[in-house]
Design a protein around this nucleic acid. Structure first.
Lengths: 129, 129
DNA sequence: TTACAACTTGGAGTTAGCTCTAAGTCAATA
DNA sequence: TATTGACTTAGAGCTAACTCCAAGTTGTAA
């Protein structure tokens, strides 16, 4: 699979894919004899993981560390487990904050939808509990 | 309430609070005659909202736009409602991605916990469905 | 075999969101 | 009233994560 096909499949730019490889967010991608990237199943699986975890706010640094540990082999199983658990906790915490914001937004929106009927706000927009 | 007290209450730096005010993420804060910030209930409510929405990934630009519309008065009720709904959708979408990542992480972690007992990985770490 | 699009690299530039610095002002205490 | 520490502003600097650029190479189609 060419870089272009991977871009289209995952809606990501070629620059980002090359950047991920360059800094180590994904391991070195398979090349043709001419030196052109030719993504294999494994390469694509790494790309998919990287996108998925980045979308959940996992820092590039953490992904780089994971790939590094992975390449060091079975002696890093503990370290990798810890890293994944740490990432998990960060996501769980972030989700909680998202839920709090959603509650606040839903409350505000419900108020605004009432105001839309009258054209006037009947409460203090910036001071609601 | 002094800037220091607000910092401590919300675990945020004074620089960030001043930055939020400067760029318009929150409206101008009440001052003493000497020109020192003296946060009133309303100022604090804006700070609280700003932190809450930033924690949910809402861009600074969007918060600035909201405050700007708010200050323009009741004629912007529709625009504000739309903005809040747009913010809501973004958060809902982000949360979905967080859930997908969590599933992937939980699967990986469960595998790793088995591997920790044996000291060896018995599956392809970078190529699991 | 030539044209030309799509690829390559190394490195510079950009954006969002802070974070720090310098130079000066305010206010509580000795 | 003098000192000291927290405050003020304007503006520069920083970090993460891309994003773009220039100069050169590969590979396909005519």
């Amino acid at each position: 699979m060419t870089i272009k096909e991977v871009c289209e499949k995952y809606d990501i730019t070629a620059d980002t894919l090359r950047y991920y490889e360059r800094v180590g967010v994904i391991p070195a991608v398979t090349r043709t004899t001419g030196g052109i990237r030719d993504y294999q199943e494994t390469d694509i699986a790494w790309v998919e993981n990287a996108i998925c975890f980045r979308d959940a706010g996992m820092p590039v640094e953490m992904l780089i560390e994971y790939v590094k540990l992975f390449q060091e082999g079975d002696s890093t199983i503990d370290a990798r487990t810890n890293l994944l658990k740490e990432a998990r906790e960060a996501i769980v915490e972030a989700k909680k904050k998202y839920d709090i914001a959603l509650e606040k937004l839903d409350y505000k929106i419900s108020r605004y939808e009432i105001a839309q009927k009258t054209g006037v706000l009947t409460w203090d927009d910036c001071k609601e509990e």
